[in-house]
């Protein structure tokens, strides 16, 4: 992430009433926040709505943000908690194989894109079968920008418990993905 102005400097500007500084922060982290929401919710419309609300909540709570932690851990935590509670409250329709097929038709332009979309499709279907807490831990882990301590701060789980949780989640994901891929191969034969 190429950051020309430091997050904390932008936050200081937002506190003086400069909304354009907050726009920069949103633009900087929108993909990350949206990804967390989408992975947990498995549905693009809900993910968009929850991601928006997470940013609005963060803006309103900016006075409480101490600046000791990174802005990313804070906004990710808000996004994660919002997405998990949204999924618990509502029965969200997860994207099905059919949704992906429609999505594929519009987007495939070459073989690389096709392979990438296939991967995305199988990955999200596997994630849809998992617990939201495990999905969020995996999503944060694969961002590859947070240390275990920062992930622990974001999730509110101790580092040792987090390591166990992450290991189990990765194992579960490998199993689910394997099942899906086997099924897909069998359907082609």
């Amino acid at each position: 992430m190429g950051t020309s102005i430091d997050d904390n400097q932008l936050i200081d500007q937002v506190r003086t009433g400069k909304l354009t500084a907050y726009r920069t922060l949103v633009e900087r982290y929108q993909d990350y926040v949206y990804t967390i929401c989408f992975r947990v919710l498995g549905n693009r419309e809900d993910a968009e709505e929850v991601a928006q609300d997470a940013f609005v909540k963060a803006y309103r709570g900016l006075e409480r943000f101490q600046g000791q932690a990174k802005f990313t851990t804070w906004i990710y935590r808000i996004a994660m908690n919002s997405a998990i509670s949204y999924r618990r409250k509502k029965k969200i329709p997860m994207e099905t194989l059919e949704d992906y097929k429609q999505f594929d038709r519009g987007e495939i332009s070459d073989m690389t894109n096709y392979q990438r979309l296939e991967q995305k499709k199988f990955l999200q279907i596997a994630l849809n079968r998992m617990l939201p807490d495990d999905v969020s831990v995996l999503t944060l882990f694969y961002f590859k920008e947070l240390s275990m301590e920062e992930m622990s701060e974001t999730t509110g789980i101790s580092v040792s418990t987090l390591k166990v949780k992450l290991f189990r989640a990765r194992k579960r994901l490998a199993t689910e993905l394997n099942k899906i891929l086997d099924k897909e191969v069998n359907s082609l034969i």
């Binding site: 990804t35 968009e48 990438r116 991967q119 694969y142 961002f143 994901l173």
Partner: peptide, 11 residues
């Protein structure tokens, strides 16, 4: 799979 698709593009 996760490594190659770790980030979704926001609308």
């Amino acid at each position: 799979y996760f490594n190659q698709n770790n980030l979704e593009k926001a609308p």
